[in-house]
């Protein structure tokens, strides 16, 4: 979706402001939100892409005005309600009021914490040979789906070069909507900044994205 989350190349947000000695969490609730989202992902209630889509789907004014973990919280609440795991009445009451569907991988317990130390594996068996190889010139498609995509707007319709093949992975565009893995080849595609931003761009700059094969066409 063409949401406000897709920020690459936007102007006007001001300076980057690093914080010295930043704590892991600024408020105790931020840690609880992070842990709940990890847990509900690990037990199969949501997935990484569905969570991203839920955050992107927050109204732009809410997205921009909310802190990072506030966005995570609003998104997980919305998702759990949409997926009938939590009722709006229960959020209101602050307690479970009725039966909810079981989770695909059951309750998240202490035994599950260890596997949260490392990232899940998104590698999948290829469905066919890769269409592109390093050195190939490609153009990113001009797509504007209302659904989730990982092709940022600032590269759409631009010409780049395939630099490396990174294997075959879960396709976020379908996984976000619980429509299956649909494994796709993943490439690093490099763009010259002047192709993206025009003649005034930094001549020393190259930008790459990680592009799934359906985002690309041969030229």
């Amino acid at each position: 979706m063409n949401g406000v989350h897709d920020m690459g190349g936007m102007d006007g947000f001001g300076k980057v402001e690093p914080e010295a000695n930043e704590p892991t969490f600024h408020h105790e609730w931020e840690g609880r939100v992070m842990a709940m989202v990890r847990a509900m992902g690990a037990n199969g209630g949501v997935n990484i892409d569905s969570q991203r889509f839920a955050r992107e789907s927050l109204p732009p004014e809410v997205y921009l005005a909310s802190s990072y973990y506030k966005k995570w919280f609003l998104a997980i609440e919305n998702q759990l309600v949409e997926r009938n795991m939590v009722g709006a009445d229960e959020l209101e009451a602050g307690h479970s009021l009725h039966q909810s569907p079981p989770l695909p991988r059951g309750k998240f317990t202490l035994d599950d914490v260890k596997r949260c130390e490392t990232r899940a594996n998104f590698d999948r068996q290829p469905q066919g040979p890769a269409s592109f190889k390093p050195g190939d010139k490609v153009r990113t498609k001009n797509i504007n789906p209302l659904t989730h995509t990982r092709l940022p707007r600032y590269v759409r319709g631009h010409t780049g070069v395939v630099e490396r093949i990174n294997g075959c992975h879960v396709f976020p565009d379908t996984n976000a909507h619980f429509k299956g893995d649909h494994p796709q080849w993943l490439y690093t595609v490099v763009f010259d900044a002047r192709d993206l931003w025009g003649d005034d761009a930094d001549p020393t700059l190259k930008v790459s994205i990680e592009a799934f094969e359906p985002y690309l066409e041969k030229i």
Binding site: N43, F73, I76, L91, G94, S100
Partner: peptide, 18 residues
């Protein structure tokens, strides 16, 4: 926000999700 986060954790705990 703290109250809402606590409420959600209570609900997920009571449901046996976490």
């Amino acid at each position: 926000t703290q109250l809402r986060v606590r409420a959600l954790e209570t609900i997920l705990t009571e449901k046996g999700y976490v």
